[in-house]
């Protein structure tokens, strides 16, 4: 015999019960605090709209997370289609006989030798943070999920609905841009 618990919804309690939980889930995926709050709000509103579709099989929290996940995918698709390309500084020749080679003005320069000494330096961290924030939004999102939050590749691909090779192209572009930004703003200033 199976006893199935039928879950119910209590939307008047959502904000006090779940807003922090949903926020923390979101902020590890989108970088910006305001955007995260907006997505949480939209999730509550979408939940209210589709309350009649709730079958009680999952818990209220699981159900809200599933709505939030769709909101995050929508958000990723939006930033993916509206901007990104124009902001990317190219580092390699795009075509011609030199295709794939470093552009002369973009080759890496040597960094000062005492880089190691500064690894705990606070200003260095601020510069790093600024450089990450300067990445095109979708690069920043994928890069952070992979590098800062340490998500598995498969997990990110599933959540953002992208392929693994997509992901590695994004990581590659993000890191070449990040290296350049750190060189310009920290190591060779």
């Amino acid at each position: 015999m199976t006893t199935n618990i039928i879950h119910t919804l209590a939307p008047e309690k959502w904000v006090s019960a779940y807003s922090d939980y949903l926020y923390n889930y979101t902020i590890t995926r989108v970088s910006n605090s305001e955007i995260a709050k907006d997505l949480v709000q939209e999730t509550f509103f979408a939940g209210l709209k589709s309350m009649k579709n709730f079958q009680g099989k999952a818990s209220e929290r699981t159900w809200l997370i599933s709505i939030l996940k769709r909101k995050i995918i929508d958000y990723y698709r939006k930033i993916n289609s509206t901007k990104g390309k124009a902001e990317v500084r190219m580092n390699f020749y795009n075509d011609g006989e030199n295709e794939g080679d470093w552009l002369e003005e973009r080759v890496p320069n040597s960094w000062s030798e005492d880089a190691d000494r500064h690894i705990e330096n606070n200003e260095l961290k601020v510069t790093l943070e600024d450089c990450i924030d300067n990445l095109p939004e979708k690069y920043g999102m994928v890069f952070k999920m992979k590098t800062i939050q340490g998500f598995e590749t498969e997990e990110i691909c599933k959540e953002l609905d992208i392929t693994a090779s997509n992901l590695w192209v994004i990581i590659h572009r993000a890191r070449t841009q990040l290296r350049r930004c750190m060189e310009d703003n920290w190591f060779n200033t």
């Binding site: 926020y23 923390n24 890496p108 260095l124 943070e129 590098t147 290296r179």
Partner: peptide, 25 residues
């Protein structure tokens, strides 16, 4: 070489980022 250094730096940064300094509601 530089990329490997950045990875170490990002590792330190990532530990800090988990300390919950994020502004909640």
């Amino acid at each position: 070489k530089q990329n490997t250094y950045l990875t170490r730096l990002l590792g330190v940064y990532s530990e800090d980022a988990h300390c919950g300094k994020e502004k909640c509601f």
